[in-house]
Design a protein around this nucleic acid. Structure first.
Length: 336
DNA sequence: ATGGTTTTTACTGCGTC
DNA sequence: GACGCGGTAAAAACCAT
């Protein structure tokens, strides 16, 4: 952002000098020009700037000065001269999504009893549409696999919302679930279990992990079944899931404790050093993150009690005590 | 199933407000 | 006296074998 601003400044100065030589320009105060008025007004005559997308230029409406040239045209590469032509030439539609069992590609008949112009339908038309809707729905979720998927994806969506996981994670989870389904991993396992496992794996792959406890809080399956199916799915599908990085828990703990960004940085620093000394191996990532946050808060003189941290991290105070001592020691050893 | 490691639970003592 | 903190021992959970 700053880069391009500097470049633009340079260009407008050049143009100024060029026009100043023919004596038409008054002095402009260089120092007073801020980034705010760069965008809207002409540096030359303070006229309104207009963007010419056809030629990729930003020009002054009054004096015609080209302020910015060769900008990137983000529009389509074809031209259309009226609305119908635009519709014909457009090659895009709604994106397909793995979050719906049919990838969002099947027909969906609207529930409003209105025609294309927004007018209400006659009663006979309404009945007809209702029958169509019924059959459309029946065909759409015809076989058991489809119904299975539908339920699982609903489940994934519900849990992801409850855990505050972004759409990208839901997408990944859906893909994993689809693979599990197509490889026949489902028989003998519950839909909820596999759905939970898929989401758990997706969240970890995305570097946005949630702890097992957080999952058991929102999932319909208990912890044991969850971990069992998770391991099973990972093994059968050959998923590559690295151990959760403690750092990825830090931001959430920090924000839940209302701590400043400075603490977050310090916590990350502590974790980095701990990783270098190798004391992190085998220890629970959540516990490490929680302890790092506690230690960082302590170092920056912010009052946070161990019990508060243990509360938001769902980790025992004892673990925090043990870990944070180690973290501080590791930090000392490296810095000296 | 088992043994080793880590985490949790429960309890106690110390200092401070 | 309540609270925060530190420590300990035993139980429980976890993981690889």
């Amino acid at each position: 952002m700053t880069e391009s601003r500097i470049r633009n400044y340079g260009r407008s100065e050049e143009t100024e000098e060029a026009t100043a030589s023919d004596g038409t320009t008054e002095e402009t105060n260089e120092a007073e020009r801020t980034e705010a008025d760069r965008i809207t007004t002409c540096p030359e005559c303070d006229g309104q700037l207009i963007t010419d997308t056809e030629h990729g230029e930003t020009v002054c409406a009054d004096c015609g000065l080209v302020v910015e040239a060769d900008s990137v045209d983000r529009g389509p590469e074809w031209r259309a001269f009226d609305a119908s032509e635009r519709d014909d030439k457009s090659r895009v539609g709604a994106p397909t999504t793995n979050m719906m069992h049919d990838k969002g590609l099947s027909t969906n008949i609207g529930w409003q009893d209105r025609d294309g112009y927004g007018k209400s339908l006659s009663s006979s038309q309404r009945e007809k549409m209702q029958r169509l809707r019924t059959w459309n729905e029946r065909f759409r979720t015809r076989n058991s696999k489809e119904r299975n998927l539908k339920q699982a994806l609903g489940e994934i969506d519900r849990m992801a919302s409850a855990l505050g996981l972004p759409d990208t994670v839901r997408e990944t989870a859906s893909v994993i679930y689809r693979r599990a389904l197509s490889e026949n991993l489902l028989p003998g396992r519950s839909i909820e279990g596999v759905a939970t496992a898929s989401l758990y794996a997706a969240a970890r792959q995305a570097g946005n992990p949630r702890s097992l406890d957080e999952f058991t809080a929102v999932s319909r399956v208990d912890k044991m079944e969850h971990t069992r199916t998770y391991r099973y799915v990972v093994r059968e599908l050959g998923l590559e899931v690295q151990p959760a990085d403690p750092e990825s828990y830090v931001p959430r703990f920090v924000s839940r404790l209302d701590l400043p960004e400075e603490v977050e940085r310090a916590a990350r620093e502590l974790l980095k050093r701990a990783k270098e000394t190798g004391i992190t191996s085998g220890k629970s990532p959540v516990g490490l993150a929680a302890s790092a946050v506690y230690a960082a808060a302590l170092l920056s003189n912010r009052k946070v009690t161990q019990s508060e941290v243990s509360e938001v991290a769902d980790i025992s105070e004892v673990t925090i005590r043990n870990r944070y001592k180690e973290l501080l020691e590791a930090g000392d050893n490296l810095s000296t």
